[in-house]
Amino acid sequence: MFPFKIALQTMKEYRKIALIVTLLFMGIVAMYSGMYPAFKDYMIEMMESGFAEGFSFFRGAEDMGSYIGFLNIELYQIFWILILGILVGFISASLISKEIEGKTIDLFMSNPVSRKQIVFEKYLGLIPMILIINIATLVTIYGITLAINEEINPVYLVMTHAASIPYFLAIMSIGLLVSVIIDEKMKASIIMISIVVGMFIFESISLMVPDYESMGYISLTHYYNPYGILKAGEVDGAGIVVLIVISIICLILAMLYFERRDIPIS
């Protein structure tokens, strides 16, 4: 017997969303990397004219003209770190809050499951979605890259995606923590989106203004640098550790808080 029934149910619940998001990202990835040959000359020209300076709030902006630099900005910085981050935050922040708001939690909790178990398994149930989107996107990028005769190191590509998993796990943990505290689904999700976008902006400011460099430390994005990995295979080991520690701490906090709180009637 499969022990994680709640996780399994959560997976089932989100399979449609997972499928849609996966297809969406495959489409976006295919479009951007497929577009590169058409943009190539234009991009190089632009880089020479100092255009990239305006993008200094993205890591790796100085290399926008190359294929990898282009992928980094257009895909990883915007769609991966920011958009997918928002999406994962949005979903994770609704995991518990929607059950409380919809009052389905009452009947759910009448089963012999502990509150900690509920939080933990809901978390587990969301992980497959992250993995599937990662794998599908990775394969698509590699396929398109080969098709347009560009070069990318497949090992670095896998590493880039693998290193993004702790980043998303951390976002999920924070989202879940928000979810157990805030009873309204929409409110929880909006708060979480603000957190993700806020962190992105903090990191951007820290990159643009050297005086504010330390501001980036409070941002999760600071600990995941797709450009460095994709270009040279430089994995920020300490960053990964930080992300994993944040994931664990927030998950434990969420479990403890949920264990102690009252489940309101209305």
Partner: peptide, 20 residues
């Protein structure tokens, strides 16, 4: 409480089920 729930059925007053 988890152990107790193994032997206890519950019908809430404000019944909400999973619509999907």
């Amino acid at each position: 409480i988890v152990d107790i729930r193994r032997n206890v059925g519950y019908v809430p007053g404000d019944l909400n089920l999973y619509n999907h």
